[in-house]
């Protein structure tokens, strides 16, 4: 009986420990905002690495996201002749839902996983302890700048991605449905309200925070050698995916 309880309880306690650790990271990071206390150099470095280097992958993802949504809408357009629907799909669905979601997942896979792997490697090779011995707070030096870089860069990347997604939608609409670009853009501007764009971008910033917190947590709490690094990366991408969907749900429920 007690063995059963322990077996059922183990995932609960470990989930609670993870949740507690992540909350602590988020709280300590927030405290760095006032008084403003962020390592400038590290921030710039992280922004370049996370943002600029992810540009191609985000562009490709956004292109597909826009294209796929228009294609799905096209089925109904062909059926019911509702051409305005295309603009709704490309505009509303992509900008508000699928764009931030897919770009967030990609960012998690690339930047979040990378960050977790790097922090995990630094932890198991004692590089984090080396920082402490050099009297440098690893949290201030490693976690805070990267966390804020992720928030800012995912926001910017999603903004760029939105443009690419509309372009992808336009191209697919032209190729598959034969809708002229002009008509497409008219439809988009008629169907999209500023709120869709804003909510999509707000979401992406929150996703950035989630990815930063999750990847830092799993990176810094790594146990046991090279295998541990693999586990940390895996736990990080899985945790991120769950958190992204949960956050998305709550923002959607609050926003509508």
């Amino acid at each position: 009986m007690s063995a059963l309880v322990r077996r059922l309880g183990a995932p609960v306690t470990s989930a609670a420990r993870d949740a507690g650790g992540m909350t602590l990271i988020a709280w300590r990071a927030l405290r760095a905002l006032y008084p403003l206390n962020i390592e400038r150099e590290e921030l710039v470095r992280a922004m370049y690495k996370f943002g600029y280097m992810s540009l191609p992958i985000v562009a490709v993802t956004a292109f597909f996201a826009g294209g796929i949504m228009v294609l799905q809408a096209a089925m109904y357009v062909a059926q019911y002749g509702a051409y305005t629907f295309v603009g709704w799909a490309a505009g509303f669905v992509t900008l508000r839902e699928m764009g931030p979601l897919l770009i967030g997942l990609m960012f998690s896979g690339r930047v979040g996983a990378n960050n977790a792997a790097e922090l995990a490697t630094m932890t198991i090779t004692e590089q984090v302890d080396a920082l402490r011995v050099l009297a440098i707070d690893p949290f201030r030096y490693l976690v805070v700048p990267r966390l804020f870089a992720m928030i800012v860069m995912l926001f910017c990347l999603t903004a760029i991605g939105d443009l690419v997604a509309i372009g992808g939608g336009a191209l697919i609409a032209r190729l598959v449905l034969g809708i002229e670009f002009r008509l497409f853009f008219d439809s988009v501007s008629a169907m999209v309200v500023m709120g869709d764009l804003t909510i999509g971008l707000v979401k992406s910033a929150v996703f950035g925070l989630a990815i930063g917190v999750v990847s830092s947590h799993f990176g810094l709490t790594v146990k046991g050698g090279a295998r541990g690094v693999g586990h940390a990366v895996n736990a990080c991408v899985v945790g991120n995916a769950i958190l992204i969907f949960v956050v998305d749900y709550f923002i959607t429920a609050l926003g509508t």
Binding site: A130, V133, A135
Partner: peptide, 23 residues
């Protein structure tokens, strides 16, 4: 505390077994 130790660590350097440079 960890925070107070930063003062001590400025007085005590440490060379790790595997050197532990930042890669």
């Amino acid at each position: 505390t960890e925070r107070e130790f930063y003062r001590v660590r400025k007085k005590c350097g440490m060379v790790f077994q595997h050197s532990t440079l930042f890669d």
